[in-house]
Design a protein around this nucleic acid. Structure first.
Lengths: 171, 171
DNA sequence: GACAGATAGTAAGGCGCCTAATTATCGTTT
DNA sequence: AAACGATAATTAGGCGCCTTACTATCTGTC
C-alpha cells in the first residue's frame, strides 16, 4: 500500500530533515490517507441510497430523536452551520425524505420531520452503515486496539484545541 | 478530548453491539476526527498566505519540479482531475502566482510556470508548512511511532482501494 | 406600546471537488 | 488529403461546505 504521489513528493522534499521528523510526516500522511479511504468507502456505501454522508447524518439524527427537530438543533448535532443544514434539507425535502412544518408557537422556527419514506430509507441505510463501520476494524488484535485507542486521542488533543471550545463562540 | 456530538449519537445508537465492535467504531471516529483536525490546522496555516491546501500543493509541485508543468501532469501528481486543476489554476493565475504559456510544439497543451511572486510565496509557505507538519508528531515516543507506522498502513490496505474494482476481498 | 437586540431560517456567493460534454489539436490510417 | 480516434484543456453544472448578509420574528426594557 503506497501513499499518494503528492505525499511522496512532499516527503522527498524533506529528505534533509532528521529521521524522526520524517517519520512524523509519514505518520501524518498515513492518517490523512486512511481517513480519506474511510470517507470514500462510506460515501460509496451511502451512494447506493442516493445519500451523502451529511444527508445520512441528518436523517439518522431525526430518526434517533424520534420526533421533529429544528434546523438549529440539527446543525449543532451535525457540527455544521445552519446555512449548510438549509441546503441539505432542501435536497432531502425534494427527495421526499423530510418535511418542513411551520411552528405555531414561534413562527421564525420550523420543525423538520421524517416522512414515511424517509423513515424507511434511514432504517435501511442505517443498518448498512452500522454493519460497515462496526466491521471496519474488526480484524485488529486487542493489543493493537488498545494502542490506537491510547494514541489517537492524545494526538488529536495536541493539535490546535480550537475544535472543542471556540466553535461554540464563533456562532 | 471529546468526540463530536454526531459521533456520540452514532455510538450511543450502537450500544447493543459487542464491545469489540464499539471499540472499532470509536477508533474509526478518532481517526476521522484527527484527520479533520489536521486539515483544519493546515488550512489555517496556509490561510495566512491566502492559499488553500490544493493551491499550495500545485505551487509546491511546480517549485519542486523547477520547471513548467502541464495541467495534466499537475492533476496526476496532485491526485485530482484536470478539471479541478483548471479551476485552481484560474485562481492562482488571477492572484499572479502562476502563468499559462502556450506550448509551440503542441498547441493543445499549456505550460504552467511560477511567477517570481509565486516563487516567493511558495518559498515562505513551504517553510511554514514543512515546519508545522514535521513538528506535529514530534512528541511521540519511538515505540508509539513504530506502533502507528505498523498499524495505519495495514488499516488502510484493508479498506476498498481507490481503484474500486473489487468488493469481494473486503468481506 | 415601541424599540433595540437576540434569534431562526434563508439567500448569495465562494471554494474545492466531481462528471460529462465541448473545443481544439494531434497522429494515424486509408 | 480526408477522416478517424486519441488527447489536452476547458466549460457547464452539481454537491457539500463555508462565511456574510438579510428577513422575519420574538423578547426584554424603557
Amino acid at each position: 500500500m503506497v501513499l499518494d504521489e503528492k505525499y511522496q513528493v512532499l516527503l522527498s522534499a524533506s529528505a534533509d530533515l532528521p529521521e524522526r521528523e520524517q517519520d512524523g510526516m509519514r505518520l501524518c500522511f498515513e492518517i490523512l490517507a486512511l481517513a480519506r479511504s474511510i470517507d470514500a468507502d462510506c460515501a460509496a456505501k451511502l451512494g447506493t441510497f442516493s445519500l451523502s454522508e451529511a444527508k445520512f447524518l441528518l436523517l439518522f439524527l431525526l430518526d434517533q430523536a424520534d420526533k421533529p427537530l429544528k434546523p438549529h438543533r440539527l446543525a449543532t448535532l451535525a457540527g455544521v452551520t445552519r446555512a449548510t443544514v438549509t441546503g441539505l434539507l432542501d435536497g432531502l425535502e425534494r427527495d421526499g425524505l423530510v418535511e418542513r412544518h411551520v411552528n405555531d408557537t414561534d413562527r421564525r422556527s420550523v420543525d423538520i420531520a421524517l416522512t414515511p419514506k424517509g423513515r424507511t430509507v434511514i432504517a435501511e441505510a442505517g443498518t448498512v452503515h452500522r454493519r460497515w463501520i462496526a466491521s471496519l476494524f474488526g480484524h485488529l488484535s486487542t493489543a493493537d486496539v488498545d494502542c490506537l485507542m491510547r494514541l489517537l486521542p492524545v494526538l488529536r488533543a495536541r493539535l490546535s484545541p480550537r475544535s472543542g471550545e471556540f466553535d461554540a463562540l464563533s456562532q
